[in-house]
Amino acid sequence: MSTDEAVELDAPDHRRAGLALRVLLAVLILLVGAGAGLAAGLAIASPDHPADDSPEAGFLRDMAAHHAQAVDMGTIAYAKATNAEVRSMGLDTALTQHGQVNIMQTWLGEWGLNLNGTQPPMAWMPDGQASMQNGLMPGMATQQQMEELRQAQGKQVDILYLTLMRQHHLGGIHMAQEILEMSDNENVTGIAKNIMESQQYEITAMTDLLAQVQAA
């Protein structure tokens, strides 16, 4: 009853304006609802993490494999090098890079991606295939070079290790530089920057050590 009275009090113009407002409100709510539904749907359907064939995923997989060889080299140096600084550097590199492999693979897991990609190594990088040497990623030692390092004796261990690892770091830095230009994923660019900077520093240190060991 009171409803009717209140409405009756309104002038026809007001009622029409009120109705128009209500329709407008209804349309707006519907649009907001649809928008929110779509936004929520899109946010989950295309999550902000990189896809299986993304440069980020390719980089993490390849860098994990690249790092794995550095762990192999580092542990050999730690066990057999004659220079205490070289041994310590081998331990440092092996532990750091083994840790980073697990960090990178954890991200792949969080993104719901397989540790092994469907594309060949370095396919994520422009001209990546051209950067492969002997079927290996940039800077990687061949199986024969690794065997020479394993079989080496005396200061030859130090010299081989420093030479191979310096080469290995150069390749790693190259890959890190490339992904920095291609990606804006904070995890990936963060670790790429770190790899670039710390390995650059280590290259300087290894060059000094190499001269020292060769002179000894």
């Binding site: 709510i29 519907l30 609802g33 929110a36 539904g37 779509l38 989950i44 359907a45």
Partner: peptide, 21 residues
């Protein structure tokens, strides 16, 4: 009217989320 609109909006959101999941 508003109630119906809300129901429709909720329905759309629900559908979006389920489809996305």
């Amino acid at each position: 009217v508003a109630g119906a609109v809300v129901l429709i909006a909720v329905g759309i959101i629900g559908w979006g989320v389920v489809a996305a999941m």
